[in-house]
Nucleic acid binder design. Structure first.
Lengths: 214, 214
DNA sequence: TAGATTGTTAATCGATTAACAATC
DNA sequence: TAGATTGTTAATCGATTAACAATC
């Protein structure tokens, strides 16, 4: 029952499925479900039960033969594996519509993302507050990072500004960058960059729609 | 040079990379680059040149031996493959922060997504306008869809409302659903559902950060 | 032409599925 | 115990990479 991630050999494909399991287990928990078999859970998600069991067994033996998995236990275990529960101090750069939407979504806060300050180039926003958080000029980002312990930098600027901001974040010592700008952000050294290109998924949708007509 | 998608046998893994190529080619086009080799383009993106050439060859022969690819031509070709240029009339349901952010992002409009109406349950919003678009009660969604030709339904409601909205969209005859609610949306018949779970990528980031420390 | 780079085949690698013994 | 379902191995399937002949 111990959570033991086999040193770095867990395939990324497996990791990417964990949040999906986590979400479905939360729904089940909210419905007061106590136990669930790999067959039923995988069916809800649209994968095979083999795949689900394989994935879980990268981290440990969490089930019980003839019984299945305890919903709440598995939910907590996957939460632990994902690093939920820990707090991640964060800054967000780029106070446009998407930035504001992310700031106001409580789900992130609930999973451990704690915003500490916001940055934007617009002079009219300098030294104001938004959602209770201080708004500073992007030129003061590096200085701020030097004095605070920030682990995550969120980029919601236009593409043109993203690379420079990423470099500043990296110099400032963040551990991970969550990039929403529609461009590839390169990290010099090996810090973690997670790209979320919302527009890409729209184009994937268009492609599928176009080709479903046949 | 003709765009010929080999009937439905293009792997999804390939499709998912096309928007990335498209984005990088746009950047190159903006920098006035005329030609590019598969080696250089793939390097910018962080994949092998083999993979890039394999991917493109699902759709046709767009390069020239000894020369490479013409940036602008390839950009346009990939745009065509993805279905950009065509217009997709759309509705958005759920006028929260994320919904508003999407409405105000011009990039979607540029690629062909044309919002026609917005829906929300909040009575104070009924029959107002937002960003020049009419806002209606979610209970009027089905009636609206019956009278208008809408192809895409965007769901930015809380998880609890998403499934019902999805069913209404489907009954109303949309071809594709772009779901941002943090839950799995099941389509009865086979309409296209593209899920964009922003929160999932945050959890993936957390996992990577947690395990990079070792 | 010589050099460069494609398109494409074959080899490798990794991820998914099937199957079943172990066991609750 | 009998039935159910896991954990895990082996088989399959699919995706990526390497290599190179074709050719611009």
């Amino acid at each position: 029952m111990t959570v033991c991630p086999d040193k770095n050999i867990v395939p990324l494909a497996v990791i990417k499925r964990l949040p999906m399991y986590y979400r479905q287990l939360r729904t089940l928990k909210e419905q007061q479900r106590v136990r669930i078999s790999s067959r039923e859970l995988s069916g809800m998600i649209g994968i095979t039960s083999s795949l689900l069991r394989q994935d879980l067994n990268y981290f440990g033996d969490f089930g019980q033969q003839g019984y299945g998995y305890k919903v709440e236990d598995l939910y907590n275990i996957i939460g632990d594996i994902l690093g939920i529960g820990k707090e991640y101090p964060a800054v967000l750069v780029g106070l446009g519509n998407l930035g504001r939407a992310l700031i106001n979504y409580e789900g992130f806060r609930k999973r451990g993302l704690v915003l500490k300050a916001l940055f934007d180039n617009d002079p009219s926003l300098q030294d104001t507050k938004y959602a209770g958080l201080p708004v500073k000029g992007a030129d003061r980002l590096y200085e701020y990072l030097k004095h605070e312990n920030i682990e995550v930098g969120i980029i919601t600027t236009p593409a043109s500004a993203a690379q420079e901001i990423a470099e500043t974040l990296e110099l400032g010592g963040v551990k991970g960058i969550w990039n929403f700008a529609p461009c590839i952000v390169n990290s010099g050294s090996g810090i973690i960059v997670e790209n979320t290109h919302i527009g890409d998924s729209m184009l994937t949708l268009f492609y599928k729609m176009k080709n479903a007509e046949n």
